[in-house]
Amino acid sequence: MIANIVRIWGKYWMIFLEGLWNTFWIALVAIAIGTVFGTLIALVRMSKRKGISSIAAIYIEIIRGTPMLLQFYLFWLGLPYLFPTISNLACALVALCVNSSAYVAETIRAGIQAVDPGQREAALSLGLTEANIMKKVILPQAVKNILPALGNEFVVMIKETALASVFFVGELMTAFKTVQSNTFLALEPLIIVGLIYLFITLTLSNIMKVFERRMKAND
């Protein structure tokens, strides 16, 4: 079996590396766009107006309360009604962005709410406007809570992209399926793909640990 693994890697490494690259950028785009929209949703969620805030709350609950796979199918089935020529990859990307925006929104909200309320009171007592309080006092402190959580979210997203292989979008699990159908071997390419996932998630968590330690040192 180890001989098979080596042989398959020797022959198909290009496909695996392409899968790795696709997994990486799909997850990165999903997190990046998810962060932009997640921030907006978090701000809406924290609005003092109950009606507006509850719209964001409902959105977050729906996304977090349904399976990722269902959301993939939903956009894969739904989006072609609006955009008849849309690709599987685009549908999968939209689903991932929507999904991560909801999780990121909660991450950001938690990070902001973890800032000592006394900070806001001090800023209020100095006559700062609400916008300045957020921009200059709360967010700079919340970032320290939010960034590590966003890193974790990125690792989660890398693993979530595997579900998109149902639609053959070219990420790592798709690479597994391609190699499997070419070689009629399943376990060997699966082990290769598993090791690649492990490599990337472990690398990322270690980078994050170093980063967190640096931030703590600055505290």
């Binding site: 000592d116 209020l124 100095l126 006559g127 700062l128 505290d219």
Partner: peptide
Amino acid sequence: RRKMGMVFQHFNVFPHLNVLENITLA
């Protein structure tokens, strides 16, 4: 509020700003 200074039991100084920036921010 700009004309009413307040000092709190737990100080509530801004930890992400240095002493000078704490004072000049507002």
